[in-house]
Amino acid sequence: MQYAGYAHLINQDSISAIAPAISAEVRSVTRKETIGQTIAVPAKLAPAPDDRLGHVLFAIKHEGINLQVLAQALPAIPEPEIRQAFDAAPNSQYLRKACFLWEHFTGETIRRATESIQQAYVPLFNPKAYITGQGQKNPRWRVIFNGLGTLDYCITVRRTRELQALLDEHLLQKATEFTESLPKDILNRTLAWAYLHETRDSYAIENEAPSEDKATRFVNLLKQAHSPRKLDEDYLVDLQNAVISNVFSQAVSFRTEQNYLSNGLRGALGVTYVPPAPELSRSLMEQLMALANQPPEAVDPLVLASIVSFGFV
C-alpha cells in the first residue's frame, strides 16, 4: 500500500501523531476521489516517496491542515529546499502556507528572493472545512492564521456534516428561550435536580459515593457557572481544593509531577491515560486559559466550551 500526504509522512518519517481519520492512498483511479475513509489518487498525482516537501504540499492542498504532523515534518525540510520551491512558484498559496508554518516551527527565516508578495491573503484553515476564528494576518506570507487559539496551542475542529447540522439547530438559543419560558419555581427545581445528578455522575466516574457535605460543596461549585469570571491559576486551584476534604491532598499550584488515570488494575495494564509531562503543564494551561478568557469571536459557545473543557481534562 502506497500512502501520500500525511499518512506517508507519519509512516516514513516516524512522526508521532494520531493517524488521520481520512488517509490518501495511491490506487488504480484516473482522478482523485474519496472512497469511504480514503482519498484515492492516481500514481501521477502522488509525490515521489522521498519528496518530503512534495508530500507536505500534497497534504495541505488535498487534506487540509494537520498541525501535529506539520510541526514535525516541516522542520526536517532544509531551508534551501523550501526557499527554492517558493522562489520557483511564489504565487502558490500552499507554498505560502508551508513557508509560514516552517518559519514558526523552526524559528528561522526563509531567505526568499521575492521581497514582497502581492497575492491576496489566504486563510490557513479553510472556513468551509473547519470551525475558525476571525484570524490574524501575517503580511510576510499573506496568510491569515484563523485557527482556534495560537499556533502553539491550536484546537482543530472539522466542520463535519454532523457538526454543521447541530450548529444549524442553534441549540443554545433554543435552550435559553425554553428556560426563560418556564415559571421560576419549576426552573429552580429543575436546576437543583440537574446539579445533584451531575454531582453523583461526576463522583461515579471515580467509583466514589460522595458524603452529603462533599456533594453540597460540589453543587455550590456548579452554581458558579452562572457567574462567569476570568480563569487563572489561583481560581482553578481553589475550585479543586473546594471538593477535596483531605488537606494533605490539596494543591497549591498547577501540577509539578507526572500523574495518570487508572482503571484499577496493577502495573502498566492499569494505566488508561498519561497526561502531558509536568514541565509542559504550565505552558499548556496558560494557553488554555488565554483561549477561554479571550475566545475567538463568531464561534459557537458550545464549540468553545467543548474544546476548553476537553483541553482542561
Rank of each mutant, 00 (worst) to 15 (best):
A4T: 02
G5S: 03
A7V: 08
A7Y: 01
D13F: 13
S14N: 14
A17P: 03
I18Y: 10
A21M: 10
S23G: 02
S23I: 09
V26Q: 04
R27W: 05
R31Y: 15
R31A: 13
I35M: 06
H55Y: 05
I60R: 06
G64Q: 01
A73W: 02
A73H: 01
E79G: 03
F86L: 08
A89T: 09
Q93C: 03
L95A: 08
L101A: 08
E103C: 14
E103T: 14
T109I: 09
T109P: 01
I110S: 03
T114N: 13
P123V: 01
N126L: 04
K128G: 03
G133S: 08
Q134R: 15
G135E: 05
P139Y: 04
P139C: 01
D152Y: 11
Y153H: 15
C154Y: 14
T160A: 07
R161Y: 04
L163Q: 10
L163H: 11
L166N: 03
L167T: 04
E177Q: 12
E177A: 14
E180P: 12
E180T: 10
R189E: 03
T190N: 04
L191D: 02
S202T: 14
Y203R: 05
N207A: 15
D213L: 12
T216W: 06
T216A: 13
N220S: 03
L221Q: 09
L222W: 06
A225V: 12
D234Y: 15
L239F: 14
Q240V: 05
N241K: 08
V243C: 00
I244A: 01
N246L: 10
V247I: 15
E257M: 13
N263T: 04
A268L: 11
G270P: 07
V271P: 00
V274S: 15
P275K: 04
P276N: 09
A277L: 10
P278F: 08
M289N: 11
L291R: 00
A298M: 03
